[in-house]
Design a binder for these strands. Structure first.
Length: 498
RNA sequence: GGAGACGUGCCCGAGUGGUCCAAGGGAACAGUUUGCAAAACUGUAAAGCCGCCGGUUCAAAUCCGGCCGUCUCCUCCA
C-alpha cells in the first residue's frame, strides 16, 4: 500500500520523488501565524493543508517532527511599528498579553478544525538568544553589516558569492537591485534597498527589546524561522512549508539567512499552499470582501445564507488541491455540506456492514483497484480532491449494497474489511474529519434536546397514524422554522439541525 | 512596470502528450420511498472539442508563442 511519495517542490518548480534525509524520519517546518489579531480563515486553510500533509506522512509510516512557530516579535507594520506592540498599545495591554490572547484563539481554532498540534511550537520571543547567535554567525561570515546598532543582511554580497538569492521566489537579482519600496524604515542605513534587517535597534518607545552585542533591540522578522528551524530540525531538513504569500520576502530571506549562518540550504522540499478567495476576489477587510471563521460557523455574515460547521468548511477545503486557489462561495459551501454528509453517512453504513464471505468477482477487483488508486493519488502531491473522488466512487458501491442493488456476495470479506479500514483511515486518520454533532442527531450529546425531540416525533407519529395531517404538518413546519428538519424514513423519523 | 499561478460542463473542481469524446461533489431530470413533502437512495443526461488565435507532434485540455481575463507576490499578509 505504501506508494512512493511525490511532492511539488517550489524550489525546483517540479514534482519530485520524495526522499527523506534519514530513512523513516521527516523533519517539517511550517511558518505559523503572527499572533497580533484573530486568526484569518485563509490561515486556517494553510494550516489545515499542512495538517493533512503531516497526518499523511505519519500514515504512510514516517516518524515526523512537525515544527510550527508562533511569531510574537519582529513583524513590523508598514509604519515600522511592531505588530505586537501596536496591538498592545491599541488595547492597552502588555505585548505578551496580546500574543497570549491570539495564540490561545489560534489554538482553539486549530482544535475546532480538528488539526493535530505540531510536535514543537516554538515562539520567537523564546529564542532571542538563538537569533542573536545567528546574527553573529552571519556577521562572522561576512554576509551582514552593522549600521547604527542595527544589523542588515548583505543581499548584494550574498548574490555575488552564490547563485541562491531569488531562486525560491523566482526573482531576478537585477530586478531586485533596481526596485524597492522607498518608505521602509531605516532605509538610509542600508547599503542597498534589497538588504533586510536581521537585528534592529529599538527606538525609545519600542517596548519589545532585548540586549545584544549591537544594541538594545529586537530581531528581524525572518530570523526567527531560520533560528528555530535550525535549532529543532538541524541545518538542513526535509520539508519547509508556508503560504504562497510568504515566498517573498520571508522565505527567500530565510534561505539567505541559513546560507549566511551555516553555509547550507535549510530545506530540501518547499511546499507552498495557495490562497483562499471569496466570490472570485481576494479577501480584503477594507472592501468588506472578508469573512471570519466565527461568521462562517454562525452564519452571521452577508456573504452566506446559513451557518456551516467547521467540518463542512474543512471538507470544502479538501475538495481543492492545496496548491490551487480556492474560492469560497455560499453555493460552494452548500454543495460541500451535502457531499460531506453523504460521505459520513456512507461510512457509518459501511462500518455496520456484516461480512458475507462473498466471491472475488469483478466488483471485488474494481473496489480493490479503486482503493489502491485513492492511496496512489494521495501520494501524488497530497491530492485530496482525487482521493475524495475515489472514496465517492466507493460510496456508490456501499450505498448500492445498503439499498440491496448490489449483493454483498459480490465482495469477499477481506475486501469489505479493507474498505472499512480505508474509509476509517482517510476520514479519521488522514483527513481528520469528525462526525459533525450539529448536523447529525445521532451524535447530539444534548440529552434534553434529544428527549424533547423524541417526544415531539412521537406525538407527530400519533397524529400521522390517525391521519391528522394538519397536526403532523404543523409540527413539521414549525420545527422547520426553528431550522430543525424531520426526516421520515422507513424505520421511523430522525431529525437534524440545519 | 516586474515575477509567479490560473482560465475545464449550470456551479465547484480534478486531469499536465495517446487508456480523456475529460474524475469526483453539487445542481438538473427520472425512478424508489412518502399521506403529501423534505431527506435519503438509485439511475440518466449534460463540456460539439477544455479562455481566444496560431504553432510543434503520428497524437494536445496537457508542450511552445501571441492575445484577452482572473488571482497572488514585488519587503503588512497563510
Amino acid at each position: 500500500m505504501k506508494n512512493e511519495l511525490y511532492i511539488q517542490n517550489s524550489l525546483t518548480r517540479k514534482k519530485e520523488l520524495f526522499k527523506p534525509i534519514t530513512e523513516g524520519f521527516i523533519g517539517m517546518y511550517v511558518c505559523g501565524p503572527t499572533v497580533y489579531n484573530d486568526v484569518h480563515i485563509g490561515n486556517c486553510r494553510t494550516f489545515v493543508s499542512f495538517d493533512i500533509i503531516y497526518r499523511y506522512l505519519k500514515y504512510i509510516g514516517y516518524q515526523v517532527r512537525y515544527v510550527r512557530n508562533i511569531t510574537d516579535v519582529g513583524h513590523l507594520t508598514d509604519e515600522g511599528e511592531d505588530k505586537m506592540s501596536k496591538g498592545a498599545r491599541l488595547a492597552k495591554l502588555e505585548p505578551m498579553e496580546v500574543a497570549q490572547k491570539y495564540t490561545v484563539g489560534f489554538h482553539d481554532m486549530m482544535r475546532i478544525f480538528n488539526t493535530q498540534a505540531p510536535n514543537i511550537e516554538p515562539r520567537a520571543t523564546g529564542h532571542i538568544i538563538e537569533q542573536i547567535e545567528m546574527v553573529q554567525q552571519i556577521l562572522d561570515n561576512g554576509l551582514a553589516y552593522e549600521a547604527n546598532g542595527s544589523v542588515y543582511f548583505d543581499t548584494i554580497k550574498f548574490a555575488q558569492q552564490q547563485d541562491v538569492y531569488g531562486k525560491l521566489s523566482g526573482r531576478k537579482i537585477d530586478d531586485l537591485m533596481s526596485e524597492s519600496r522607498d518608505d521602509l524604515k531605516n532605509q538610509s542605513e542600508k547599503n542597498h534597498p534589497s538588504d533586510f534587517a536581521i537585528w534592529m535597534k529599538a527606538s525609545d518607545e519600542h517596548i519589545l527589546r532585548w540586549n545584544s552585542p549591537w544594541s538594545v533591540g529586537f530581531p528581524g522578522w525572518h530570523l526567527e524561522c531560520s533560528a528555530m528551524s535550525t535549532k529543532y530540525l538541524g541545518k538542513t531538513f526535509d520539508i519547509h512549508g508556508g503560504g504562497n504569500d510568504l515566498k517573498f520576502p520571508h522565505h527567500e530571506n530565510e534561505v539567505a539567512q541559513n546560507h549566511g549562518a551555516c553555509g547550507c540550504h535549510p530545506a530540501n522540499y518547499w511546499i507552498h499552499t495557495n490562497m483562499l478567495e471569496m466570490n472570485g476576489r481576494k479577501m480584503s477587510k477594507s472592501d468588506g470582501n472578508t469573512i471570519t471563521p466565527a461568521q462562517l460557523f454562525s452564519g452571521n455574515s452577508p456573504h452566506i445564507s446559513k451557518a456551516y460547521s467547521p467540518m463542512v468548511v474543512k471538507f470544502f477545503m479538501l475538495q481543492a488541491h492545496y496548491g490551487s486557489t480556492l474560492d469560497i462561495t455560499d453555493k460552494g459551501l452548500q454543495d460541500a455540506e451535502k457531499g460531506y454528509r453523504k460521505l459520513m453517512e456512507a461510512n457509518a453504513l459501511l462500518q455496520k456492514m456484516e461480512s458475507s464471505n462473498g466471491a472475488a468477482t469483478e466488483l471485488d477487483k474494481e473496489i480493490n483497484a479503486t482503493i489502491n488508486k485513492a492511496f496512489q493519488q494521495m501520494s501524488d502531491d497530497f491530492n485530496t480532491p482525487m482521493a475524495l473522488a475515489r472514496l465517492f466512487e466507493l460510496v456508490a458501491k456501499i450505498n448500492g449494497i445498503g439499498a440491496g442493488h448490489i449483493s454483498g456476495d459480490e465482495i469477499t470479506s477481506d475486501t469489505l474489511q479493507r474498505m472499512k479500514d480505508t474509509f476509517q483511515s482517510f476520514i479519521t486518520d488522514i483527513f481528520g474529519l469528525l462526525n459533525d454533532s450539529t448536523a447529525d442527531s445521532t451524535n447530539n450529546g444534548n440529552g434534553v434536546t434529544d428527549g424533547l425531540m423524541e417526544l415531539i416525533i412521537d406525538l407527530r407519529q400519533n397524529a400521522r397514524v390517525t391521519k391528522d395531517w394538519g397536526t403532523s404538518d404543523k409540527i413539521r413546519d414549525s420545527l422547520n422554522e426553528l431550522k430543525i428538519q424531520l426526516k421520515d424514513g422507513k424505520d421511523g423519523t430522525t431529525w437534524s439541525k440545519n
